[in-house]
Write a protein that binds this DNA or RNA. Structure first.
Lengths: 144, 144
DNA sequence: GTAGCCCTTGACGCCGACGTCAAGGCAAGA
DNA sequence: TCTTGCCTTGACGTCGGCGTCAAGGGCTAC
């Protein structure tokens, strides 16, 4: 029934280093066999998968703790407890805020790009009038 | 006309440490006075403001380099050069990709939250039938 | 016995953009 | 002269989530 750290890591698609790190952080403690080896069971795999899923969502390790504790308290899902739901909600707020900021930045950068492109177009057009097209600025850009 | 590092930092709303860091990175070299003090002028302030603006947009320091070099080459704006426009475009792509990922995560987390809330609602409803409402799980959550 | 694989702990490395502290120099005002 | 305030260089600390290396122990197969 039990497995050692290498197998657990492989089954969760992660590394032994990561598991030891989680243990050091108190997130995924391990039992020890007679020889000092860490021993895990299927429940640990479930905990670990919960952590990894949330990590993939961009949750901090600390934010996964309520989910892990909820599972260890015997609940069917990591998000069966209010503390986990609270983390979900907080994360949604953070995501919305971040997405909003990034969209604002995206708009600003887009405007800057358009403005700069218009400025270069005007320079090019001006150059047509006097004495033929002259190069404007070739600092490292478009070549190749 | 010249100013020392403290004044430049204050006028740009940053710190002396930051300016020394930029200099170490070769981004904002400084002349030196007779006593070894760094000396800056209004052009340096302009360079610095360009860097800070881009940093606020989330650009890496290295990504600001083409803008700085463009200004130092005598162009009116940091984005008057093709290399700068290339950075703009690359950044737009990165932003779009990132925003897309975050929106996908947001949707997933939203679904998880709804599912978990429904599950709890069903548990609460089930509890109504037998012998009155019983507490479901109070691990650290909603209190206060 | 010995090769080979897995395990153990400990500890330093990484990345980016600085913060923070230490020890000392220069200039100006009281 | 002494204090005050700004300046200098150098170097270590921060944060998260591990990667990577070192030195050594355990167990199995041959």
């Amino acid at each position: 029934m039990g497995m050692r750290i290498g197998e657990l890591a492989a089954r969760a698609g992660t590394t032994t280093r990561t598991l030891r790190y989680y243990e050091a952080r108190g997130l995924l403690p391990a039992r020890r066999g007679h020889n000092g080896y860490r021993t895990y069971d299927e429940d640990d795999l479930k905990l670990l998968r919960q952590i990894r899923t949330l990590q993939d969502f961009g949750f901090d390790l600390e934010e996964t703790r309520p989910f892990v504790e909820c599972l260890r308290a015997g609940h069917p899902e990591g998000d069966s407890c209010p503390a986990s739901l609270a983390v979900y909600r907080r994360k949604l707020g953070e995501l919305d805020a971040l997405i909003g900021e990034l969209q604002a930045v995206r708009a600003q950068v887009g405007q800057q790009l358009e403005r700069a492109e218009r400025a270069r177009a005007e320079l090019a057009a001006d150059a047509e009038v006097p004495g033929g097209p002259e190069p404007v600025c070739e600092l490292g850009g478009d070549h190749r």
